[in-house]
């Protein structure tokens, strides 16, 4: 794909188009915005393809991370989500994009760890990831203060990572 091999690019579009579309759809509020964002994500993907390292993480994770970063950056450019101050322009540039640390991210383990979180935290995660709601929109929906939403999402994410480490099938060789 990094070489511009047409078949590989077609295969990438076929395999991950739905994922990218799903992310773009959640972070935009209109058909035309979502279309623009999808095109932007794929353009970034063609540019960044040479940075993919399969030993660092799966293709799905690589594309998912890239799509999400572009979506967040796109929101920032649109001036949307005032409570949502994401990446600096430099961070958002794909020249610095890396999926280091993604090697141990297994879909089953992540979703398994999610189920161990308190029900209320899971609900916040669903609002954020399934529906693409901003923190303030979640606060409106749940009646929680904005700061509480932010705190619970962050602490939930860290807690989830802790569970993942426990669920990691590989023994800790550092002991």
């Amino acid at each position: 794909m990094a070489l511009g091999e047409p078949k590989a690019m077609e295969q990438c579009i076929a395999s991950y188009g739905g994922l990218v579309w799903s992310i773009a759809h959640k972070y935009s509020r209109s058909h035309s915005d979502a279309e623009d964002l999808v095109q932007e994500i794929f353009t970034a993907l063609w540019r960044s393809a040479s940075r993919f390292d399969e030993s660092a993480g799966s293709e799905t994770t690589f594309i998912g991370m890239l799509a999400r970063r572009r979506a967040i950056d796109w929101l920032r450019k649109q001036g949307r989500r005032p409570d949502f101050e994401p990446l600096t322009p430099n961070d958002a540039e794909m020249s610095t994009f890396s999926h280091q640390g993604a090697a141990k991210i297994d879909h089953g383990i992540v979703m398994g760890a999610l189920k161990r979180l308190p029900e209320e935290t899971q609900k916040l995660f669903r609002f954020h990831f399934e529906r693409g709601l901003s923190h303030s929109e979640i606060a409106d929906q749940t009646g929680m203060p904005l700061g509480t939403v932010k705190t619970r999402l962050r602490s939930g994410l860290l807690e989830l990572r802790t569970y993942m480490k426990r669920l990691d099938p590989q023994p800790n060789t550092s002991l």
Binding site: G18, V20, R68, A102, I105, V110, R161
Partner: peptide
């Protein structure tokens, strides 16, 4: 070892409804 970015991307994927890219797009 467990990149939060990667975890978030996996959650995004795992919790997103399965959709297809519109043919025209």
């Amino acid at each position: 070892e467990f990149s939060l970015d990667a975890i978030v991307a996996t959650l995004e994927q795992g919790l997103s409804p399965a959709v297809s890219l519109p043919e025209e797009l």
